[in-house]
C-alpha cells in the first residue's frame, strides 16, 4: 500500500514539475492524473494495492474541500454586499450547465448502449 501511495505522490510530483517547467495553465495534479492513466494503460490492469489506496482517497473526497470552503469567512463582506447577483448567478448558471451538458451528451450518444439509473 505504501508503495502505491508513493507512486501516486510521484505522479503528482512529476505533474507539478512539468507544469512549472513548461509553464502549463493546468494544475500539477491534473497532469499527475494523466500520467497515472498512461501508466495504467501500459500496465494493462489496476493492481489491488493501488485500488485500495485510490478508494480510500476517493471515498471521502468531499471532506478535502472543507478547509478551502471555510475561507468564506474571509470574503463574507463582499458576498454580503453583492449577495443577489452572486447567488442568483451561481444557482442558475450551475443548474443550466448541468442541464445543457447532460442533454447534449445523452442526445449525442443516443445510439450507444445506455444503462439505466437509480439515484
Amino acid at each position: 500500500m505504501l508503495f502505491y501511495l508513493t507512486i501516486i505522490l510521484l505522479c503528482q510530483l512529476f505533474g507539478e514539475a512539468l507544469v512549472t517547467f513548461f509553464a502549463l495553465p493546468v494544475p500539477g495534479p491534473v497532469i499527475g492524473m494523466a500520467l497515472m492513466f498512461v501508466g495504467l494503460l501500459i500496465k494493462g490492469s489496476v493492481p489491488d494495492g493501488l485500488s485500495v489506496v485510490g478508494e480510500s482517497l476517493l471515498s471521502h473526497m468531499s471532506l478535502l474541500f472543507i478547509p478551502a470552503g471555510v475561507g468564506i469567512m474571509v470574503n463574507a463582506e463582499l458576498i454580503q454586499r453583492e449577495f443577489v447577483p452572486i447567488s442568483v448567478s451561481l444557482v442558475i448558471s450551475t443548474l443550466l450547465c448541468i442541464a445543457v451538458t447532460g442533454l447534449l451528451m445523452s442526445w449525442l450518444t443516443r445510439n450507444k448502449s445506455i444503462g439505466g439509473y437509480k439515484e
Binding site: 503528482q12 497515472m36 476517493l58 478547509p67
Partner: peptide, 30 residues
C-alpha cells in the same frame, strides 16, 4: 482563518493525490 487553514492544510493537500487517483475509475471505464 489563516491559523485554521495552516492547521487543516493536510486535508487540503490530499486533494492533489485524490485527483491523481481519479485515473483509476477513468481507466476502468476507458
Amino acid at each position: 482563518y489563516d491559523r485554521y487553514f495552516q492547521g487543516a492544510h493536510f486535508l487540503h493537500f490530499l486533494l492533489g493525490p485524490a485527483t491523481v487517483a481519479l485515473a483509476i475509475p477513468l481507466y476502468r471505464q476507458f
